[in-house]
Amino acid sequence: MIEIVSASRCIECDICVKVCPANVFDAVPDSAPVIARQDDCQTCYLCEIYCPVDALYVAHRAEGHFPITEAEVEERNLFGSYARALGWKRGKAGGTEHDPTHRIRVAAV
């Protein structure tokens, strides 16, 4: 579930508030959004890739809180890691033309 909104990275654009399909964030005037309904998070990682500054971190555990520090996420270079794997940059889509999934499907038969 969503664990971190990095105040140091966040530019207060509130895109995450808008795009989260589960409405887990609340906007806060002149501040970074807060995680208001963590238990509603569906661990889809989509907020991360829409974030233009890689300020969000979703832990892999989908059931219950998974404590992790911002320092550890930085240290392990995990901020924005899913966006990089897809080819999304600064919240913009990209990379579908390089998707090799068709090769997997041939191999799976």
Binding site: Y45, A85, L86, P100, T101, I104, A107
Partner: peptide, 20 residues
Amino acid sequence: ALQDWLRRGQPNCFVPHDRA
């Protein structure tokens, strides 16, 4: 080769593993 395709083609499947 398949590992590479899986990682690049199904990246969300590897997010939990990488984070764990």
